[in-house]
């Protein structure tokens, strides 16, 4: 079943929040490295939580292309549609 992108985005904000130590306001354009200052280990933890949330595998090879929260939402919708 296809997922609504809005629903994914809303849930994604919730999943990011526990790692958002500096309480940066989250938006579609928020960048993981530049705005949230996530290091590679934080990204790994977040990805694992996303995988469990949507029952998908997010290949590591995909990560370098995912800079913003919005891009991750797109990727999840696509992965879910392909599964």
């Amino acid at each position: 079943m296809a997922l609504s992108r809005d629903a994914v985005l809303a849930r994604l904000f919730e999943l990011i929040q526990p790692f958002n130590a500096k309480a940066i306001p989250l938006a579609e354009g928020t960048r993981f490295a530049d705005d949230l200052e996530f290091d590679s280990l934080t990204v790994m933890d977040l990805v694992a939580n996303m995988e469990d949330e949507w029952d998908i595998n997010v290949p590591l090879n995909m990560l370098p292309d995912l800079e913003t929260v919005g891009q991750v939402a797109d990727a999840i919708v696509k992965l879910k549609a392909g599964a």
């Binding site: 595998n57 997010v58 290949p59 590591l60 090879n61």
Partner: peptide, 11 residues
Amino acid sequence: GCKLGTAEVVR
């Protein structure tokens, strides 16, 4: 090794 190769990588 994963980065050097072309496979999809899942941890």
